[in-house]
């Protein structure tokens, strides 16, 4: 039996005048996994998170942490750690002070602030004013803030924004470690590729509505395999495809076979003694599936 949901969004809606920022949205997030909350900018992700965290009042529906709303939690900061904007800092405060001002209310000693700054790699910069921090450093500081109370639910809004490649790898490992400890991790992003090697589950929204909710494997099922082959003897390959009833098509200077992966084609060509110069997976990847689901034209990606 699956563990009970740690975060439940239940028929949640938020209207700003005529605009339905979040429209009858329902999904659940389980503990012990990293869940990606995905959608293009303006899809209603942040608004959903703000309602979940008691900062915005839903027009209708509810969002729960366990079985309570955020504002009902006895020790909210020890239950949920969240970052919403990496810009929520007073530029005149040091990184250390930014954590120290919340420590009393989170219910942790100042030593915890130092520990966390060490953990997120800001130990050197902790006495410096946040105004001079890079975007990546701010993200790290925001993450340290979220972890102050060692919460069992971690909610991060676009945490990879502004992180350098090493930072992203570090973040990935951190989120994985959280999930392995049994924490519930919900991470929003507008770029699937940013989180696809981190998440176990995906919740995809577009225009305030749920468009897909599954495991990452479930999302992979929506992908299509297409293999591109270049050979000096295309006729022989066409023969082979015909015999095997593969769906083959000619493109400029190459052949494409749909629904069959590279290994299968490579092995068959080898058995037939067909010389191959290129054998590549050019299928509809996750990113394209994501873009189709969220209704964004594919051209925008290549542009």
């Amino acid at each position: 039996m699956a563990a009970p949901a740690a975060v439940t969004v239940d028929r949640l809606s938020k209207h700003f005048g005529q605009v339905k920022a979040v429209d009858d949205l329902s999904f659940a997030v389980r503990p012990g996994a990293v869940t990606g909350f995905l959608g293009p900018n303006g899809a209603g992700k942040t608004t959903t998170l703000r309602m979940l965290l008691g900062l915005m009042r839903p027009t209708s529906g509810r969002a729960l942490i366990g079985d309570q709303s955020y504002t009902e939690l006895r020790h909210p900061a020890q239950t949920v750690g969240a970052t919403l904007e990496a810009s929520s800092f007073h530029p005149g405060r040091s990184g250390l002070d930014h954590l120290r001002i919340y420590a009393p209310q989170v219910g942790v000693p100042d030593s915890r602030c130092h520990e966390l700054l060490e953990l997120v790699g800001l130990a050197e910069a902790k006495k410096r004013r946040v105004g001079g921090y890079s975007m990546g450093m701010r993200q790290r500081l925001a993450l340290a803030y979220a972890m102050l109370g060692d919460p069992s639910v971690v909610i991060l809004d676009e945490p990879a924004n502004g992180l350098d490649p090493q930072g992203i790898v570090w973040l990935r490992q951190l989120l994985r470690a959280f999930a392995d400890e049994g924490k519930t991790v919900l991470v929003s992003s507008h770029v699937l590729s940013e989180v696809q090697s981190t998440v176990d589950d995906v919740v995809i929204v577009a225009k305030g509505r749920l468009v897909h909710e599954s495991s990452l494997a479930g999302l992979r099922d929506l992908t299509e395999t297409t293999t591109e082959i270049v050979t000096p003897t295309p006729d022989r390959l066409r023969d082979l495809a015909q015999r095997r009833q593969w769906n083959i098509e000619d493109t400029q200077g190459a052949l494409r076979i749909h629904g069959v992966d590279e290994a299968t084609i490579g092995a068959a060509a080898f058995a037939d003694g067909i010389e191959l110069h290129r054998l590549a997976d050019v299928g509809v990847g996750l990113e394209e599936v994501f873009l189709r689901l969220t209704g964004e034209p594919t051209q925008e990606v290549t542009a």
């Binding site: 008691g54 955020y70 939690l73 909210p76 900061a77 904007e85 929520s88 919340y102 989170v106 803030y145």
Partner: peptide
């Protein structure tokens, strides 16, 4: 935002 997250009251 962080202020109301640590103390929603």
């Amino acid at each position: 935002t962080p202020t109301l997250l640590v103390e929603p009251r």
